[in-house]
């Protein structure tokens, strides 16, 4: 397993990765509370962007309902905790299961009829909105009034109950993001990863080579939504409150996929890069426009910035930067280039 994961990764990229990881591990020692909160947000979007990327970037499935999977995961573990006192360390299993089941249900319904592309995207939006309205009307879980978690002991490190300081959440998210990166790396190098990319490029050709398209798409949507469900646990316990209006909002989905698209869909590091770049950028924009006291001005420029990036770099920023740094052999796409000279 480790051998497949390392295959084709040049030493230079591994060193760069190790440096970045060390910097991220050490970061809480050097930054203030505000910067830490930005980093937490960045890691959250890196993780969720990676999960989303698994569907669109690897298997070519455009989901615009990522918020549904995160939201369901959030509500599952928060509900268990609040109503039955089940700690999130156990509750997360329900979260992952519920989100994965929701993903599988959407996938099963769509892929049976070969609903793809824009149609699949619209179906995911429909399901997401449907769920939002249902939860909005579900009084047991707070409905539109929101679900609030007990806030106690925000200083320590109670991992079992996910009660603690922002630093704890930071490290939890860092571990999740690293784990997600490794998982994606492993999956991409596996048979499933080859099959996903083949399906993304040409479904009929993939079928003719024995690829069970339905099963592979189901795997993509299930794994990805289950992973998003796990992010929901952190979302719930970090914010301590949940509102259907925000958790299941289309804008929440957009925030999650933004980093991945800007970083580079289909690349392994693009989602992480994109989130680490965009989140501070968004914060900077907030800071810069705060003084204007004009509601909407931040969103206005945000929209302009995103549109400009899409127009300027339709393949995302990461491939270009990776090329410039000589790190672009991280992606499996280039393994062959190595083998040409080696093996």
């Amino acid at each position: 397993m480790i051998e497949t994961m390392l295959a084709g990764a040049p030493r230079r990229a591994l060193v760069a990765l190790a440096l970045l990881l060390s910097a991220l591990v050490a970061a809480p020692l050097f930054v203030n509370a505000y910067a830490l909160s930005v980093l937490i947000l960045a890691l959250y979007y890196a993780y969720t962007g990676q999960a989303w990327n698994m569907m669109i970037g690897f298997a070519g499935l455009l989901s615009l309902g990522e918020a549904m999977f995160v939201g369901l995961g959030a509500y599952a573990s928060a509900g268990l905790f609040q109503k039955f006192g089940v700690p999130p360390v156990l509750g997360l299993f329900l979260s992952v299961a519920v989100s994965a089941a929701a993903g599988a249900a959407v996938g099963w319904l769509a892929f049976r009829f070969d609903i793809n592309g824009v149609y699949f995207a619209l179906l995911t939006i429909a399901f997401s909105e449907f769920t939002r309205i249902l939860v909005d009307n579900w009084a047991y879980l707070g409905g539109s009034e929101g679900l609030f978690l007990h806030v106690s002991g925000l200083a320590g490190w109670d991992i079992v109950n996910l009660r603690g300081s922002p630093v704890m959440f930071y490290y939890v998210l860092l571990a999740m993001t690293s784990g997600m990166f490794l998982l994606c790396r492993y999956l991409l190098a596996s048979r499933l990863g080859y099959y996903w990319r083949a399906i993304r490029e040409d479904q009929d050709a993939a079928r003719s080579l024995g690829v069970d398209v339905f099963a592979c798409k189901m795997a993509a949507v299930t794994i990805s939504s289950g992973a998003a469900g796990l992010a929901g646990v952190v979302y719930a316990f970090y914010y301590n409150n949940l509102f259907p209006e925000t958790a299941f909002a289309l804008s929440h989905s957009i925030d999650m996929l933004l980093g991945a698209v800007v970083g580079g869909v289909g690349t392994l590091f693009g989602p992480i890069f994109g989130a680490l770049l965009l989140t501070p950028l968004g914060e900077a924009l907030t800071a810069a426009t705060d003084g204007l006291r004009l509601p909407g001005v931040k969103q206005f420029f945000w929209g302009v910035v995103v549109a400009a990036i899409v127009l300027a770099r339709p393949t995302g920023l990461w491939p270009m930067i990776a090329g410039a740094l000589g790190l672009d052999k991280v992606g499996l796409d280039k393994v062959d280039a190595d083998e040409k000279s080696g093996r």
Binding site: Y194, D202, L209, L332, D333, D336
Partner: peptide, 19 residues
């Protein structure tokens, strides 16, 4: 022809071998 355009020639063929 229906090549997998985002994959290298060798990867294209490897998909077949993964059968």
């Amino acid at each position: 022809v229906k090549p997998f355009r985002g994959m290298s020639v060798q990867e294209n063929v490897a998909v077949g071998a993964l059968r």
